Simulated assay, not measured.
Amino acid sequence: MSAQPIHPHAEPDRVPRNAEGIAAALEGERRMEFYRELLAAAPEDAEGVLRRWWCEAMLDTDPSGGRFTEAALNGTLPTKSVAAAIARRQAAGLPVE
């Protein structure tokens, strides 16, 4: 038996999960920072560097990103309490450790 995602992705990732794709999604100084960090990483740490920067690149290329940033800065971003999040997970039968 294998684990399958609850909500499978219908579209491919906006940013390919490799150094070339990540670098292409980043701009200017952020791209250079990514390359510096990747080149300075020990081989066993390179995967973690790629994973972190892929997340950064996905956020940078999110079409809704500007709207969320603006709402957060204006104080209008919807939030929920930790208690509400825990209750939702419990109702769904998910762990809350």
Rank of each mutant, 00 (worst) to 15 (best):
I6G: 01
D13V: 00
V49F: 00
A42K: 13
R36L: 07
N74Q: 14
E56G: 01
V15E: 13
E20T: 15
L39T: 12
A71D: 10
V82W: 08
D62A: 11
I22V: 15
L39W: 14
T69L: 14
G66N: 06
P12Q: 05
A71V: 05
I22G: 05
E70C: 02
R36D: 13
A71K: 12
G75Y: 12
K80P: 03
M1A: 07
G28Y: 09
E33T: 06
T76N: 04
A41N: 05
D60H: 07
P12C: 09
I86D: 01
P5N: 04
A84G: 03
H7W: 10
A84V: 06
L38N: 04
E27C: 11
L77Q: 15
A72M: 11
L94N: 06
R88F: 00
E44V: 09
A10I: 10
A23M: 03
L50M: 06
C55F: 00
A19H: 07
M1K: 02
A92R: 13
A84M: 03
D13I: 02
Q4P: 00
P78K: 15
E33Q: 12
E56M: 05
A57C: 08
I6H: 01
A24S: 13
G48M: 09
R52A: 01
L59P: 01
E33S: 08
A19L: 01
A19W: 02
I6P: 00
E27G: 15
E20S: 12
G48H: 13
G48S: 14
R88N: 01
T61F: 14
A87G: 02
A84F: 03
A3Q: 08
E20P: 04
L38E: 05
H7G: 02
A87F: 03
A85K: 11
E20C: 02
A24W: 03
T61H: 14
R14M: 12
I86W: 00
Q4V: 10
A41L: 06
E11T: 11
S81I: 02
P95A: 10
K80N: 09
E44F: 06
T79F: 12
R88W: 01
P12R: 05
E44W: 04
A91K: 07
H7K: 06
T61W: 13
H9Q: 11
T61V: 12
